[in-house]
């Protein structure tokens, strides 16, 4: 049984669970920083899924297109997170709020 499971399947399964964790965290965590981190985990799980797909059949080399997409994606995700951090810090500075809830 266990011998049939390929490496990429293990990682694809993990990516599925990570996606759920990130999604749940995005909705359930209150603080802005945690929401940003949850979004980052969500994105990372999608990258993991893409790369584990690229690894399915070992030809001469693994499919380079998803790899390139993921590298681009990581940089874009981090720039978006940095922007989100700047917004969260501005909200904190202006209103003293660190969550979206009414009574923090």
């Amino acid at each position: 049984m266990i011998a049939e499971i390929e490496s990429h399947q293990i990682y694809a399964g993990t990516a599925g669970i990570l996606f759920c964790l990130g999604l749940a965290g995005l909705f359930m965590c209150g603080h802005f920083l945690k929401k940003i981190i949850a979004t980052k985990i969500l994105g990372t799980s999608v990258f993991l899924l893409l790369v584990s797909l690229a690894n399915r059949n070992q030809m001469e080399f693994a499919d380079p297109v998803p790899h390139a997409m993921v590298i681009t994606g990581i940089v874009v995700a981090v720039s978006a997170s940095a922007f989100a951090l700047a917004l969260a810090r501005r909200i904190w500075k202006e209103t003293g709020r660190s969550t979206f809830e009414d009574n923090p």
């Binding site: 490496s7 990258f47 790369v51 993921v70 590298i71 990581i74 981090v78 997170s81 951090l85």
Partner: peptide, 24 residues
């Protein structure tokens, strides 16, 4: 690295963990 994507590993360690960690 386990998924044979060392480029992505370098990018993740430097950008995902390093830069974003510093910003956080």
């Amino acid at each position: 690295v386990r998924l044979a994507a060392p480029d992505v590993a370098l990018a993740e360690a430097a950008i995902g963990a390093g830069l974003l960690g510093v910003l956080l």
